[in-house]
Design a protein around this nucleic acid. Structure first.
Length: 308
DNA sequence: TGTTTCCCTAAGTC
DNA sequence: AGACTTAGGGAAA
């Protein structure tokens, strides 16, 4: 199936979108991106900038599904005009024009970002793949076997040592406990959409392994809260490098000293981002994050690639 | 130029 | 404030 875009009104870059580090299950094979979304295998490619072709393991993956997953409903041009506040964001938007956030499934997003704490992206990808192979259901697509993302009860009932085989380390307990809470219906992720941002965030933070940063990732990447602003080590670096003038000098010195950031540090940076970039700060975050990471990698490797 | 080893750090939370 | 599991990957050997 195919989707045709008017790229002058709906800028979109599949490569930038799937390689910017927000998702962990996509791989590039030739000009096709192949990945697993929940329990479905999906294959996508972009042709000439304005046509998206796709195939999937399940008939429910239709044009609407793909449009929704890729957030083609976001008015990216309007968002650009709102977040383009300075030359740093401007450069990032120019370099990764058409990058969109992806509308992930909340459960998968939640577990993924619990596993992502204090890990690099290649390691996170391995963890998610391992969890899927061990606890997910197999899906055959074009003669190849893939594994869907595990259901909450599968992870809730998992043995701790089995989880640890997936290289989760101390996160194994967090994942199992959180899976138990979701399985028992104590927290309905979809229902968080009805709540104000602060309430939804604190509900998420009641889960083990979920702090401010993971909660913001889940809100931004799966629950349509573009006002969420995840602050990780990269965002801290970016703030120190380009935006230190917006903070008190004492605060800047404090941030420079320590590698990790405290909860109050997080709140200060978060408040600045929300105020400075506006209600779509999540998009600004993703562009700055990807731009800075690419610059750092290209400095080491001497190239600028899409596969990070 | 190709391995092995060392070392730092990682989309933070408790 | 400091510990925490684990391993990717660059740098040194």
């Amino acid at each position: 199936m195919r989707i045709e875009l008017d790229s002058s009104l709906t800028p979109f870059s599949l490569n930038h979108t799937l390689s910017c580090g927000q998702t962990f299950r996509w791989q590039l094979r030739g000009d096709w991106w192949v990945g697993v979304v929940g329990k479905r295998v999906l294959k996508l490619r972009q042709i000439n900038g304005d046509v998206i072709e796709f195939e999937a393991s399940s008939p429910e993956v239709d044009v609407n599904f793909v449009r929704r997953y890729l957030r083609l409903d976001d008015d990216l041009l309007a968002i650009y005009s709102m977040i383009d506040r300075d030359r740093y964001v401007h450069a990032a938007v120019k370099r990764f024009y058409g990058l969109r956030l992806v509308r992930q499934e909340p459960w998968e997003c939640l577990v993924s970002y619990i596993c992502a704490t204090f890990k690099n992206i290649p390691a996170i990808k391995q963890i998610i793949l391992g969890l899927s192979q061990r606890f997910g259901s197999p899906v055959t697509f074009e003669g190849e076997r893939f594994y869907g993302f595990p259901e909450p009860n599968a992870l809730a009932e998992a043995k701790l040592h089995e989880l640890r085989l997936c290289k989760l380390g101390y996160r194994a307990e967090y994942v199992r406990e959180t899976a138990g809470i979701v399985t028992r219906g104590k927290l309905n992720l979809e229902s968080l959409r009805e709540l104000p941002y602060a309430s939804a965030k604190s509900a998420l933070m009641s889960l083990p392994g979920v702090g401010s940063k993971v909660a913001d990732c889940v809100l931004l990447f799966s629950l349509d809260r573009l006002e969420a602003f995840p602050v990780d080590v990269w965002m801290k670096r970016i703030m120190l490098k380009y935006y230190s003038g917006h903070f008190e000098s004492g605060f800047v010195e404090k941030l420079k000293k320590r590698t990790s950031i405290s909860k109050s540090d997080y709140e200060i940076i978060h408040a600045f981002g929300r105020r400075y970039f506006g209600e779509h700060v999540g998009y600004a975050q993703e562009y700055l994050y990807h731009f800075e990471r690419c610059k750092a990698l290209s400095k080491v490797k001497g190239w600028i690639g899409v596969r990070l």
